[in-house]
């Protein structure tokens, strides 16, 4: 590549970087300001004196909810990923009459607006006595996560040569054995995509969280974050620090798994 075009590329990238950094800059600089310094007039300026007051307060208030979010996200992500992966295997490799129709019906569930099921969901959880608990939310996120996890794994496994599976079947291996011995070991990129997707979505989900849990000791972090703001004075430094704290786990997932993310996307979900 010529020098000029290299330079040009960098310039473009830097311009877009600026665009991407604007809100993040505001977020971070506000979170380090003491309360008196927070105002819309001064939003572009760096804090005169960096203060950790916001972070300390946000952490004190949010740490129990941080724990709740982990209790919610980890099982929901893992279970929906595992079920989705075995579903994906069945739907890509063991086709039977109507399996494509079933897949389409499953997939549709991914697109529904949660509003259209909100009320029955609440009444259902109430009837099985899980309303107001994290476990109710876990169940919701597993079920509503199944379409996307199934989709990703189905597309991912579609790339695996069918002969490989057939050969294993001829050797007398059953469904579960094939899944466990042949597919599972090569599924890492697929799992990465699913985990990133599910983890972020469940972690950041607000509508179900706020309607299903009302006891603050059981609320996940998104709800607690909104609760940081009273109806009178909003301490924006605490709010923004809280937002950063709340985003840390998802960022960590991105950083740790980012290497496999593109590979997984390539192998899986991008297929039309």
């Amino acid at each position: 590549m010529s020098r000029v075009s290299k330079l040009f590329t960098y310039i473009l990238l830097i311009i877009f970087t600026l665009f991407f950094l604007i809100p993040i800059y505001v977020l971070i600089s506000t979170s380090f300001k003491p309360l008196q310094e927070v105002s819309l007039e001064k939003m572009w300026f760096l804090p005169l004196k960096a203060s950790f007051q916001g972070f300390v307060k946000a952490f004190q208030k949010l740490s129990p909810n941080l724990k709740n979010s982990f209790i919610l996200v980890i099982p929901a992500t893992i279970i929906s990923a595992l079920v989705g992966s075995i579903n994906g295997y069945v739907l890509s490799k063991i086709k039977f009459r109507g399996s494509n129709l079933l897949f389409t019906l499953i997939l549709f569930g991914m697109f529904i607006p949660y509003q259209s099921v909100l009320f029955p969901v609440i009444r259902f959880l109430q009837s099985i006595n899980l309303y107001g608990s994290i476990w109710g939310l876990v169940i919701l996120h597993i079920i509503y996560g199944l379409p996307i996890t199934t989709l990703i794994f189905r597309n991912y496994y579609a790339e695996v040569p069918t002969e490989l599976i057939e050969a294993a079947h001829i050797d007398g291996a059953g469904i579960f054995k094939v899944y466990w011995k042949v597919l599972f070991p090569i599924s890492l990129p697929g799992f990465v995509v699913v985990i990133i997707w599910q983890f972020t979505n469940i972690w950041n989900e607000f509508l179900f969280a706020v309607t299903v849990t009302s006891d603050p000791t059981k609320q996940p972090i998104t709800v607690a974050l909104v609760n940081l703001a009273g109806s009178k004075v909003v301490e924006w430094n605490v709010q923004m620090a809280g937002a950063l704290l709340a985003a840390l786990p998802t960022l960590l997932v991105y950083v740790l798994l980012g290497k496999y993310f593109l590979r997984g996307l390539l192998a899986g979900s991008v297929k039309g």
Partner: peptide, 20 residues
Amino acid sequence: INATVAGGAGTNAKAVLKTR
């Protein structure tokens, strides 16, 4: 048990309360 739901001058809280 201090059950609180913030946001929107009580709007969120009222929604949660009704469903409960």
